[in-house]
Design a protein around this nucleic acid. Structure first.
Lengths: 345, 345
DNA sequence: ATGAAAGCGCTAACAG
DNA sequence: CTGTTAGCGCTTTCAT
């Protein structure tokens, strides 16, 4: 046996003394062919171990039945959870997913985008990196006419749909919860302000502060990225100041984790010395020590909805009207004793 | 503008009054073409926004430059971490990954396998589901000549490589650690015994028990699957018996989590009432309450190595000699006080 | 150094 | 119902 062997339509056609077209139609369930022939063809195809060549089929039909996805990370609960939902939804519709991982690197993101275009995916779903500022790469996609859907971390471009969660509302609720619990010395560890979620979460935070007439201490606000290390460093920076906060609103789960680590390092007890609310679940927020109160994001809905909208765009073509969908977030209280009163009885 | 517009080699050729062959060669850096022409062609290609059509290229060249991957889950630290490593390695080599997710479902796994074959991937990496018993689906792949590499959860078939971690050694070390700490009433929450990792981890466990002359209490061994719920149920079942263990060796991280949940439910303190060692990291084993001692798996190495071996198989073709690579595991002690003596001073 | 010819395996359009 | 004719966009000989 040579390199790789595959049975073709022609192989089947020859044996049955029919044309490849007949075989093609029969196998795809085209109504043209008689039941009798269909049965014979399908049987032989199975016996010969026929595997349709999707590459040839795509070239000919000018559609690949694939959706390209670009995300910043995989090994994070949030993204892996969204991805899993996208995969489940795609499986149901028969589409295949071409996933690419930008690793929070804008240059890599751009390369993946080109690659997906090269692979002639029928649509693209992208959650941009934390560095992405230049929308021109995405503007190029427009010239190709390939539908694109932004998810969670979006760019402000028209012509494309955006599926996001209610970042501002979630941040507002978290901050307000802290205020209502009695905290006044409130810090915020946020993401970069050029990212949509970084901006929106900060906005929710500051709106809640303003509404309750609490001034924001600029030394207590750090926009240092979404990662655990950045959360750790950010908290260290804040806590190295003369004035110490008693509460932190962390913009992502990894940031929260960084705060936990920093607190341990500084021998601060949570929530007695420093209390915290995070954004995003990890699957074990409840098992952390202490359990972490957080803003829950509907990750599965995000995934499913993104794919749904993307497919819709593909099907409708140019007639498609881009939409922006904002999915609700929910504050999940991990423990009852939040607040300075509860903490220091 | 119509559906989707893409510049072709012919478009470029026409403008420059050369043949498509020349353009194709120039763009691929074929030595045939003069520097002069190459420059002109590349320049125009860029200006016209040419994106090579990989589908056409694949059909023609009979290689897709893609690797198919089948894994049981994404939203789990272990798998998402392995995947991320595969993606990084693939990015460096210019291969694209076609990831599929079986969701621990053997039927779905089989469908994904066919799909990958249809997409004419150049190689396949698979970690089988916890249900997978029938190797015939994978035997079919052999007829196609497409290289396949098993990863972590493997099937015993020859002709294919296997990249695994030292499950038995890790399980042995964990169990022995417990024994040395003074525990005797030792339970095991394991995976199904028809899976490679379920078997190997149990084997390591029983070998350690045997070596130290500790009889295995059959009521304290449950083979109930790898998930959190299954861990929870398994522990509940064990603990509902008359005799209670004082230590559990959990075969996966989710199982450990299930034990944490069950312990909380039963108002058991860890480690005072029930101590535990798990298998696999989650990224926050240290932040759990209490921190979890565990057998660490080299997830990134698993991913990189699998891709490496797969590419090797592709390059060498039939001359390739399948290998089995066993990567070392390490016991990571989360706290010093493991053991009944430490726990009850 | 360049190009003409011949397909890769399949599907769309149209005839019969 | 079935088949013929033409490609899809690219690469691979093999001439020139």
């Amino acid at each position: 046996m040579k390199k790789a062997f595959h049975v073709t339509l022609a192989d089947i056609a020859r044996k049955l003394d029919v044309s490849t077209v007949t075989v093609s139609k029969a196998l795809r369930g085209h109504p043209d062919i008689s039941e009798e022939t269909v049965r014979k063809i399908k049987k032989l195809a199975r016996e010969m171990g026929y595997t349709p060549n999707r590459i040839a089929s795509s070239l000919s039909s000018r559609k690949s039945n694939t959706i390209g996805v670009i995300i910043p990370k995989v090994a994070h609960f949030f993204f892996s959870s969204v991805i899993e939902a996208i995969y489940d939804a795609a499986f149901e519709t028969g589409y295949e997913i071409i996933l690419t991982v930008s690793q929070e690197n804008a240059a890599r993101e751009a390369r993946h985008l080109r690659s997906l275009l090269s692979m002639r995916v029928d649509g693209i779903i992208v959650s941009v990196t934390e560095q992405t500022k230049d929308p021109s790469v995405f503007a190029d996609v427009k010239a190709t006419g390939v539908p694109l859907t932004f998810m969670d971390r979006v760019l402000d471009m028209d012509g494309y749909s955006k599926i996001v969660v209610d970042d501002r509302g979630g941040a507002f609720a978290a901050t307000e919860q802290a205020i209502k619990a009695g905290y006044r010395r409130i810090a915020h560890l946020g993401g970069y302000q050029h990212t949509s979620i970084g901006r929106e979460r900060y906005r929710g935070f500051s709106e809640a502060m303003a509404l309750h007439g609490i001034p924001i201490n600029p030394h207590w606000v750090v926009f240092g990225g979404f990662s655990e290390d950045q959360g750790y460093n950010g908290f260290m920076q804040i806590y190295s100041g003369a004035e110490k906060p008693e509460f932190v609103f962390a913009a992502t789960f990894p940031i929260s984790l960084g705060v936990y680590r920093a607190a341990e390092r500084l021998h601060l007890r949570i929530p007695e010395d420093i209390d915290i609310i995070g954004f995003g679940n990890s699957g074990f927020n409840q098992v952390l020590s202490p359990p972490l109160t957080y803003v829950d994001q509907p990750t599965r809905d995000l995934g499913r909805k993104s794919l749904e909208v993307c497919l819709d765009h593909i099907r409708r073509g140019p007639r498609f009207q881009p939409t922006t969908i904002v999915l609700p977030t929910h504050l999940i209280l991990a423990r009852t004793g939040l607040g300075p009163n509860a903490a220091k009885p």
